[in-house]
Design a protein around this nucleic acid. Sequence first.
DNA 1: CTTGAACCTCTAGTCGCTATAGGAATTAGG
DNA 2: CCTAATTCCTATAGCGACTAGAGGTTCAAG
Lengths: 150, 150
Amino acid sequence: MTDLSIGRLARLSGVKVPTIRYYESIGMLDAPPRSPGGQRRYGDGHLEQLRFIRHGRELGFGLDDLRALQDLSARPDRSCEEADGIARKQLAEVERRIAGLEAVRRELERMVERCSHGVVDECRVIQTLSDHHLCAGDHAPDHQTVPRDT
Amino acid sequence: MTDLSIGRLARLSGVKVPTIRYYESIGMLDAPPRSPGGQRRYGDGHLEQLRFIRHGRELGFGLDDLRALQDLSARPDRSCEEADGIARKQLAEVERRIAGLEAVRRELERMVERCSHGVVDECRVIQTLSDHHLCAGDHAPDHQTVPRDT
DNA sequence: CTTGAACCTCTAGTCGCTATAGGAATTAGG
DNA sequence: CCTAATTCCTATAGCGACTAGAGGTTCAAG
């Protein structure tokens, strides 16, 4: 019971103070006991829990998946099939996003390379946006949010 | 003046009806004239404008950047330096995100490969999330939203 | 005991949409 | 011409995962 304040927990975990409170509010992080004055007092378990969440977020897992993984890690005798499935799903998703972004990168490179550095009227950047036929291949990315890199 | 309904415009542009209205509401798309009954009637210019936006979104540009690029394309005699800069910034951003995702992919692969398919207690997936030291390298992605691929 | 940093709750905003409710207009078929 | 099906309208709220701000309270160092 190291009795950490929220600020110390934030520093130790790499998760910002408002985010910790947010996690508690949505039931991702166990609510800690409070000091006589009503301030949160965390123990080592909370720190572990928060590092788990943070690491998972860095790997792009959604909070729902992380909740499921948390629940699983609390039942160490169960088969890890489900955990494995969640991780594989995430890997597939990441691969999908990389592929989409690679296509986008190629297209942006083409645009930028061919820019004549003249006037807008002849600018490949603008032209390409206006006319999709100037594009080489397909590109149409995806949709997800992952944490900051502060 | 092809006098398109919003639904036809949606089909032709690949942008959903509510999204078109949303774009109008935030000033991304010019407000069209209305039918006697109050329904939107679009012309070819709107279709072009919408395709420009859609294409830009597919390439990951934010709406603010696209607004700037739209403004530039309306001034064809200006230098395309600014447009070029926006595109380069976007390219850099995309490259940054790919690099982050590659790191994440490697880590997820490691996790999944080493899963013993036994019980949770011995599961690499859960273990790795709990303990960052089991990770190979750095990973800590980014932050952005790109359209769906419906 | 004072001061200033850190804490508290609550609300609202971010981005780019998407969904729903409750109606009004349009269009195709008979 | 009439009806029914479809499309359209506005307005509001919700998504994920936070972030920012206001206005007030508690804690810890000196």
